[in-house]
Each structure stands twice: as C-alpha cells, then as structure tokens.
C-alpha cells in the first residue's frame, strides 16, 4: 500500500497523540488519586430505600476525627439531607441513591459530579480543604421540577464548627 511520506508522519503523530492522551488519564488516576465512581457503593432496591438503616434517615454522620459519611437520597425534586454541613479539612464520603428516577449530583464549580441511578449507590469521597459554601444541583433531567432541584454543601471554618458543636449540647 502506497502512503505518502507526510501522511506516514501524520499517522505516527496521531498515534503519539493518542498514547499521550491515554497516559494523561492513567497518570492522573495513578498519581493524583482522582478516583472514578464505581460499583463499590453496592446496590439497593428502590423499594427498600425508605426502610434502610442508612437511607431511611438521610443524614451526615461523623465517623472519624475528620471523617464524615453522608447518606443521601435524591428525590423529585430535592436532595436529602440538605444542606450538608461539615468542617473544613474533612474527608466526606457521600453515599447517594434514588428511589425514583435517574438524577445527577454535582457540586457546582468543582469536579464532584456523579450520576444517581435507582438501584445503585454512588459512593464518592471528597476532601474539603477550604471553608465556604458550595452550590449543588441535579444535572440529569428528572421530571418537571428538575430545574428547581438544588442544594448546598457548607464547609465551616474550624472555630465556627466547634462553636456549632458546642451549641448542640
């Protein structure tokens, strides 16, 4: 087969580009610790969500010094619990499921973004190093009120968080 030398050069260039792209993805996975949401959250039948020990009472739970777990249910058209409040510097694992249609959970302006699929539990761990308020929205069409479906993650500064905890007792 006769291929012009420039075209051969481009063929090589294109392959180099492809390998470079794949390496970027692999590098980011291996070195920076960015992790894909996967099957690790397990499954749950939508009918069982309301009776489930975790999702029957959607909540934020402190499980370690700086570790929190959030059991969240996406409803038509709110997230429960809302808002999610944690102190700065915490590592938060979200477990999100839906007992209705497909939703999305996205913390606006960040890379936190997952689908919420009935039957599946999306498990994602996020580190919140900076205090501040983050907007949350549903980014998958889920019915008429979809555009209303929003929420918040509030990351409190250390002292504020301690005050809040103190106020509780």
């Amino acid at each position: 087969m006769e291929i012009h030398k420039y075209e051969k050069a481009w063929l090589v260039g294109a392959l180099v580009l492809i390998v470079f792209f794949i390496s970027t993805v692999a590098y980011v996975t291996a070195v920076t610790g960015v992790d894909m949401v996967d099957e690790s959250g397990g499954t749950i039948h939508p009918d069982d969500v309301s009776d489930d020990e975790r999702f029957g009472d959607p909540r934020v739970e402190q499980v370690g010094e700086n570790e929190f777990e959030v059991y969240m249910v996406a409803l038509q058209f709110i997230f429960r619990p809302d808002p999610v409040e944690v102190p700065e510097g915490s590592e938060v694992t979200f477990y999100i499921t839906s007992d209705n249609v497909v939703h999305g959970y996205q913390i606006v302006g960040t890379n936190v973004n997952t689908m919420v699929i009935p039957g599946q539990i999306a498990e994602i761990t996020v580190e919140f190093d900076e205090a501040g308020e983050y907007g949350v929205l549903c980014n998958e069409y889920c019915g008429i009120g979809h555009a209303d479906m929003e929420g918040k993650v509030i990351v409190h500064p250390e002292d504020e968080w301690e005050e809040m905890q103190g106020g509780d007792d």
């Binding site: 992790d35 894909m36 099957e39 973004n113």
Partner: peptide, 27 residues
C-alpha cells in the same frame, strides 16, 4: 464514566478504545 455500578476497569478499557477511535478521524 460517572455512573455508579460499573467497575473502573471497564471504564478504563473503553477509554483506551475511545482514544484509538480518534485515529480514523485524524487520518
């Protein structure tokens, strides 16, 4: 890619196939 319930390995494999699928368009 951001669906729960699908192991990361499958996603990675499809990602490499996808990148190779750039080849015919680049050619």
């Amino acid at each position: 890619y951001v669906d729960p319930g699908i192991p990361e390995g499958f996603k990675f494999m499809m990602m490499t196939n996808t990148m190779f699928l750039l080849l015919p368009s680049l050619l």
